[in-house]
């Protein structure tokens, strides 16, 4: 891996993103609108405080999954990926470039969404606010890594977009937001114990509930990191220098 090529690739991806004003607006505005809506729906109940923080982890994961899978698919279809792989660029440079770019975009998204949730929607967070941002960025990088992997199995943008409900929704159902995970049927609980979004939600809820959440957040982040590395390794197998 060459840090210069990673940085150049991240800068290029961010430049493409910046040129697309509507996507930038959607990245920033949609989480705020949904959080605002949720706090309004559950106005006067303790529900918003229970799930509001968790959602701050779900947005970056979902959005970065879709954005990365479509962007990588475009690179495959337009021939730019094949061209890059004929240069000294390593596959890892490509993948870490994407992860870095969308990780940075996630910092901006998380700062704005967290600020909105706490200062406008009145979300009660006992732990440090910056911990929410750190977990959100890890979730974003996880979403990017899985999106990169998923794009290897999609032949069209239609298919790539469909991977979002296929990959994200089951995790969403099992992550403990709909029903606490210890109340799930035991088989589903076992499944939810390995899915990465469960750990993301767990970490977010720990930050929201405790002034010193590190005993939970540390191990959760460890599992998320393992998923990121695993997805990137598998994703690298879908980037082929030689093709039919």
């Amino acid at each position: 891996m060459n840090p210069r090529l990673v940085a150049a690739t991240a800068a290029r991806v961010l430049r493409q993103l910046r040129a697309d004003h509507r996507t930038v607006a959607l990245l920033v505005v949609v989480p705020c609108v949904l959080i605002g809506l949720l706090s309004w729906v559950y106005n006067g109940t303790p529900v918003f405080d229970r799930i509001g923080a968790a959602l701050l982890g779900v947005f970056p994961f979902t959005v970065m999954f879709v954005v990365t899978s479509v962007a990588t698919l475009r690179e495959r279809a337009s021939g730019t990926l094949e061209r890059l792989l004929t240069t000294p660029m390593a596959k890892a440079d490509f993948m870490f470039g994407y992860a870095l770019a969308f990780g940075l975009a996630a910092v901006v998204q998380a700062l704005i969404a967290t600020g909105f949730a706490v200062y406008v929607a009145g979300l009660d967070v006992r732990g440090p606010l910056w911990a929410l941002v750190v977990v959100a960025v890890a979730d974003a990088v996880l979403g990017s890594a899985l999106g990169l992997l998923a794009s290897g199995f999609a032949n069209s943008e239609f298919q790539a977009v469909q991977f979002m409900p296929a990959v994200v929704l089951p995790q969403f159902l099992l992550c403990g937001l709909i029903l606490p995970r210890d109340q799930l049927p035991s088989v589903l609980q076992g499944v939810s114990d390995v899915l990465p979004l469960s750990f993301a939600v767990d970490a977010m809820q720990a930050v929201a509930a405790r002034t010193d959440p590190w005993g939970d957040v540390g191990p959760d982040m460890g599992v998320i990191a393992v998923w990121i590395v695993g997805a990137l390794l598998l994703g690298s197998l879908t980037l082929r220098r030689r093709t039919e």
Binding site: R4, L5, A8, R12, R15, Q16, G79, T80
Partner: peptide, 22 residues
């Protein structure tokens, strides 16, 4: 390649500079 493999959403200079860095 036969079909131009460049980034449509970037400027001419940004494209050439990026591939140059590679």
């Amino acid at each position: 390649t036969q079909a131009p493999s460049v980034y449509d959403d970037l400027s001419v200079h940004a494209n050439v500079a990026y591939f140059g860095r590679m």
